[in-house]
Structures are given as C-alpha cells and as structure tokens.
C-alpha cells in the first residue's frame, strides 16, 4: 500500500472528525428528545426539547460538512440514518439512557461545561467551516450551561431526596468523563495541522469549573476510579443499539422516505 498523500491524510481524518462531532451532538440530541411530553412540567418539557433541537441542528451542520468533504453523494441523512453502532464515534456519555431527571441534568452539566471549552477552542480552527460551526454552537452552549448549572444547584442544594439523586447521578456518570479528554494519534495530527482541538488541554479547566459548581450545589466531586471509553473507536455500550433502532427505523424500513 502506498503511503497516503498529505491531502488524503488530512481529508479522511477531518471527515471522521466531523462525523464524530456530529455523532456526539446527534446521540445527545436524540436522548433529550425522548423527554418530549415526559418532562416534569410543561416549561421544562419545552426547555429539554429546545436544547435537543440545538444539538440536532449542530449534528446537521457537522454531517453536511462531512458529506461535502467526502464528495461521494451521501448527505446528512445518509450519515445519520444508515450507519450502524460500530460506525458511530460519539463519546459514550451521550448515548446513555436518560435515567431520572437528575441523571439527565448531571450529564447535561458535564457536557455543557465541556462544550464551552471545546467550542471556544474550535473557533480558532484553521478550517473555516469548523470555526463557523463552533462560533454558532458556543452561543447556544452558553445558554444551555446557564440552565444546567442552575438545575444542579437546585437539585443538590434542595431536598434530601433531590440531593441524593443528584449525587448518585454524578457518581454513575463520572467514569464516562475521562474519554472526553483522551486524544488519538490521528486527532493529534489534526491538532498539529491547526484544525482540531487538543481535548487533553481542556481537562484542567473542566475540572476546576465542575468542582466550583458542585461545591455550590453542596455535592461531592465523585471519588470514582473506574473509567470506560471506546466511543471514538466505535466500541459502544449496548444502549446505542436501542437508540439507533428507534431513530433509524423509518429510513431503514422505507428507504428514502420523506415527510
């Protein structure tokens, strides 16, 4: 096999990078959409589904760009609906079931704090499309974070039960955090090319922000020493299969169906 040319080296990793970022947004957006008509009260139902839409919109932008980079006639829908579990590259935390409201909001806080760091760094990308998507996303994440932070403080510093549930939620999720800051060699090449974000460099800031918020919420920073990863390599929890089964059913059963 011939060594790949510099362009190919950047093209395929960049394409995969966009797909992975789209997958993070789509899986979480889908999970949030499952709250539709199940929210604890009307306003919260609307909020959860509004945030869901923001994530799905983000996924569309990343997938459309990936489709364009690939140039093989696939579109955003093909990328979303016609790939199986092993081809999905999202972080595991995004595909986990919603759990109770505390789990949903704890995950949201973890992701929102991460997104603030990630997208503000991505606005500096040498790739103008990625930088533009990031500039769009960060405005929305600022809003998302304001809400998830408020909720965690209310739940943590609320009743005995809400405190316990919030603490359990963070304990359950904590082991899914490390993979968000682990870089692959391919991604490091993109960082060197000035296109991608060095996620490992975001960790310290993420940790100090989370410590501060959890402290205000009278919650303990989990003392968990387990870590589970593999999402970026296509190794997922069993939950993703069920998520995709529901999300992709229509397009798999009636290919190309529109409405």
């Amino acid at each position: 096999m011939n060594p790949p040319s510099t362009t190919a080296l950047l093209d395929t990793p960049l394409l995969n990078y966009c797909i992975a970022l789209g997958d993070d947004s789509l899986t979480l957006g889908h999970r949030l959409s499952e709250w539709c008509r199940n929210g604890p009260f009307l306003e919260e139902d609307l909020a959860l589904t509004n945030v869901s839409l923001d994530f799905i919109g983000r996924a569309r932008l990343f997938y459309s760009y990936a489709a364009k980079l690939e140039g093989k006639g696939r579109d955003e829908d093909d990328i979303a609906y016609l790939r199986d579990c092993r081809e999905y590259r999202n972080f595991l935390i995004n595909e986990l079931p919603n759990g109770d409201f505390a789990v949903t909001m704890a995950r949201q806080l973890i992701v929102d704090v991460y997104d603030m760091g990630f997208f503000s760094a991505l606005t500096q990308s040498q790739d103008p499309t990625l930088a533009a998507i990031a500039a769009k996303a960060i405005k929305e994440s600022r809003y998302h974070l304001r809400r998830s932070e408020e909720w965690i403080k209310r739940l943590g510093d609320g009743t005995e039960e809400s405190h316990e549930r919030a603490q359990n939620a963070f304990d359950q999720l904590w082991g899914y955090v490390p993979e968000m800051f682990e870089m692959s060699d391919v991604e490091l090449q993109l960082v060197e090319a000035g296109m991608a974000v060095d996620r490992s460099a975001l960790k310290a800031n993420w940790e100090s922000t989370m410590q501060l918020i959890l402290k205000q919420a009278t919650l303990d920073v989990p003392n968990e020493n387990w870590a589970i990863g593999g999402g970026r390599d296509g190794i997922h929890t069993e939950h993703l299969g069920y998520l995709l089964a529901e999300m992709q059913f229509l397009q798999r059963t009636y290919p190309g169906q529109q409405w």
Binding site: E43, L46, Y143
Partner: peptide
C-alpha cells in the same frame, strides 16, 4: 423569568409582576 426556553428556541418565558400577564421574551444571542 419563568423559563429559559419558551415556545421556540429564540424565546424565553417571562411573567409581569404588575399585570400578571405571561409573555415571551426574545433572547439575546
């Protein structure tokens, strides 16, 4: 403020403390 999110992504839900009417607020972004 009643809710950070209203009937569409661009709006939040508020209520007036004087006339008690709830209303949409177009969020800054």
């Amino acid at each position: 403020r009643i809710s950070e999110f209203g009937s569409t992504a661009c709006k939040a839900l508020y209520q007036c403390k004087d006339c008690l009417e709830p209303f949409d607020y177009f969020k800054c972004i």
